[in-house]
Design a protein around this nucleic acid. Structure first.
Lengths: 129, 129
DNA sequence: CTTGACCTTCCCATGATGGGAACCCCCATC
DNA sequence: GATGGGGGTTCCCATCATGGGAAGGTCAAG
């Protein structure tokens, strides 16, 4: 199957698939005309990548997860560690964002939000320290 | 004051200040030798930018907030709208991240995390659909 | 006059993705 | 056989905000 069909069936874009190839996550046989040729097994890899990316694993993590996935002698502890480290990163970012959102919501709640220029949001941003 | 001192006193890096200049957020007088020269008023702008960036406003938003800040006839409603739109964006991202974190935590909780290869995380990632 | 600490501009890298150009391939239809 | 359309290929550029670093100008102190 060519890259277009592989894209359709994996839920990725052809661009992404080529990119993942340059990053060493997938490989594809080449036909005589230079076209990439994907087998069902490659599709499984592509879907794996899509699921991992849907959980926002960076490609570097995906590479390691794929290696573990292929390794029948893997230790589930290794997979777990990658996942939990990623969870920690996600939660840290999410909490930072929500803290910012809270501050801003608070400021906005005290802003008249009308035609007058007075605005606690700007007052906060212009603080001297 | 030169860019190094402006950086120290604003809490930004000299690199960032130059970048903000290319983006039209700050301007600086130039000395005869080509060095940028900042006044106290410029420092206030730089600190404003730092505070806005600390709340993760994209530079485009910072540009608009600065324009409103300088405009004595601004309507606080305009500031508020920018802020609340940004809050919505932050919360959407934060929630998406926490949803991913939850899923992964759940999967990891069912993973032995020992030397055995069996792993629900990988099972999830390899799902066919 | 040299040294070191500044400053300048310009280019490149990050991470994952999209856009688009220039060009090749294949098949169907006229 | 020529043409057109819809594949494919590679390569470059843009995003967003920031850092790294090179090459070179400037200045003050020794």
């Amino acid at each position: 199957m060519n890259i277009g069909e592989a894209a359709r069936r994996s839920g990725l874009s052809a661009k992404m698939i080529r990119h993942y190839e340059t990053q060493g996550l997938v490989t594809a046989r080449r036909l005589a005309n230079g076209y990439r040729d994907y087998a069902e097994a490659d599709l499984a890899v592509l879907r794996f990548i899509r699921h991992a990316r849907a959980l926002a694993f960076p490609l570097e993590d995906v590479r390691r997860l794929l290696a573990l996935w292929r390794d029948r002698n893997r230790a589930s502890a290794d997979v777990r560690r990658i996942a939990l480290d990623h969870v920690a990163a996600l939660e840290a970012k999410a909490q930072a964002m929500q803290a910012m959102a809270h501050s801003l919501r608070h400021l906005a709640a005290h802003c008249h939000g009308d035609g007058r220029p007075d605005c606690p949001i700007l007052n906060e941003l212009e603080k001297t320290p």
